[in-house]
Simulated assay, not measured.
Amino acid sequence: MTHTDDFLPSGSPNVLETGKVGYSAPSNIALVKYWGKTSGQLPANPSISFTLQHCQTRTWLEFHKQALGTVSFDLFFEGKPKDSFRPKIQTFLERILPYQPFLNDYHLAIHTENTFPHSSGIASSASGMAALSACLMALEQQLYPDVNEAYFRTKASFLARLGSGSACRSLYGNPVVWGRHADVPGSSDLFGVTLPFELHPVFKNYQDTILLVDKGEKTVSSTAGHNLMHGHPYAERRFQQAHENLSELLKALETGDLDKFIAITESEALTLHAMMMTSMPYFILMKPNTLAILDRIWSFRRETGIPVCFTLDAGANVHVLYPENVRKAVLQLITGELVAYCEKGQYICDEVGDGMKPL
């Protein structure tokens, strides 16, 4: 079993005065949802996600050696200083200092941009923290050349979790499990892992079209929502249910059972929002247009037999999931009907992807 101490650097680092590294990392969408966490950004239940391909954050990290003795950084989003991002990055860098103490010896210039509009309503914390963590590991690898690829990726996932829990699932290709689970050897609450079996071909090029129902700021942050699972009347049963659903979904992903995949994925999406609606205080992040889309997807599936389904994140937007071989028919549904429920008719076509990449 891996422990946090396994991520402490050992030995003397190389002398490195200045440099620049860059990585991209994608967003991801959970199929079995993580909702509720314990101290140290650890999940209350395991989750599994599809890594996306096109919705990415690209980050470049410039570093200059300075005897500062404290975290020092400048942050630029799409070429301009972004003060509103600073508190979260400050907290993240301070949180990972025990695992990368050399950060106190460098001034960092972080340049980041998204391939999707920041105000689109797609969460960028997962892709952003994953890309930054990969850059920080690239710096560590220059200081400690013995860092191999497996350790690089695992520690990048470990670090990313300390910035945004779901970010630990954005470092790998599909699918990624985060959280200890009896059916996934090597699974851990500390970082994400890939599946222990070959994914069925039907899922290897799965499509995800994201319908942008509401691009506004969420009324309740994910952090606040997670905290409301403490003392939630249905929390313990929900955590148990996530383990059960993950076991069943793993079977579906291995065998290509689309009916089981659809049933579990949609149930998980609705359960996530049921937890929000039954917390205290309670809240609803879905919008009327969200429900209209879900209803139309159900009726379309009944009418045509086409295996299209939905999932939701902690917001109003709808992820429409379907195999590539029915792409034409599903896009006709989206462009012909569902865009009417999207803010300004906007949607993003994506598909499953490969995780982080060097720039």
Score class of each variant (00 low, 15 high):
1 M>F: 05
5 D>F: 11
6 D>K: 10
9 P>N: 11
10 S>A: 11
14 N>H: 10
14 N>F: 02
22 G>H: 12
23 Y>T: 09
24 S>E: 14
24 S>V: 12
26 P>W: 04
28 N>L: 07
28 N>D: 06
31 L>M: 12
35 W>N: 05
36 G>K: 11
37 K>A: 02
38 T>N: 08
39 S>T: 10
41 Q>G: 05
43 P>T: 03
46 P>I: 05
51 T>R: 04
53 Q>G: 01
55 C>S: 13
57 T>N: 13
59 T>W: 06
60 W>N: 14
60 W>C: 14
60 W>T: 15
61 L>G: 15
62 E>V: 14
62 E>M: 14
63 F>D: 08
63 F>L: 13
64 H>W: 02
68 L>D: 11
70 T>C: 12
72 S>V: 14
73 F>N: 14
75 L>P: 12
75 L>Q: 09
76 F>K: 11
81 P>E: 08
91 T>I: 03
99 Y>C: 13
102 F>W: 13
104 N>F: 08
104 N>S: 15
104 N>Q: 15
112 T>I: 10
112 T>M: 12
112 T>Y: 04
114 N>K: 06
124 S>N: 06
125 S>A: 15
133 S>E: 03
135 C>N: 13
136 L>N: 08
136 L>M: 10
137 M>Y: 02
137 M>K: 09
138 A>N: 03
139 L>Y: 02
139 L>V: 09
140 E>T: 02
142 Q>M: 14
144 Y>E: 05
145 P>W: 08
147 V>I: 15
148 N>C: 09
150 A>C: 04
150 A>H: 12
150 A>N: 12
152 F>T: 08
155 K>M: 10
156 A>Q: 08
157 S>N: 08
162 L>N: 11
163 G>S: 10
174 N>G: 02
174 N>D: 06
175 P>A: 12
175 P>E: 03
185 P>T: 08
185 P>W: 07
188 S>G: 02
188 S>K: 07
192 G>F: 04
192 G>T: 05
196 P>R: 11
200 H>R: 10
201 P>F: 04
202 V>E: 03
205 N>A: 13
209 T>W: 13
210 I>A: 09
214 D>I: 08
222 S>C: 03
225 G>K: 03
228 L>F: 07
231 G>L: 01
232 H>S: 01
242 A>S: 15
255 T>F: 01
255 T>K: 11
257 D>I: 13
261 F>L: 07
263 A>D: 13
271 T>K: 08
275 M>G: 00
276 M>H: 10
277 M>Q: 14
281 P>T: 07
282 Y>F: 12
282 Y>R: 15
286 M>S: 09
288 P>T: 06
289 N>Y: 07
290 T>V: 05
291 L>R: 12
291 L>E: 06
292 A>G: 11
295 D>M: 09
302 R>D: 00
302 R>K: 12
302 R>T: 03
303 E>Y: 02
303 E>M: 05
307 P>N: 05
313 D>E: 12
315 G>Y: 02
318 V>E: 01
321 L>I: 07
322 Y>E: 00
324 E>W: 01
324 E>Q: 05
327 R>P: 00
330 V>H: 01
333 L>H: 04
333 L>P: 07
336 G>H: 07
342 C>I: 08
343 E>A: 07
348 I>W: 11
349 C>R: 13
353 G>E: 01
357 K>D: 05
358 P>Y: 04
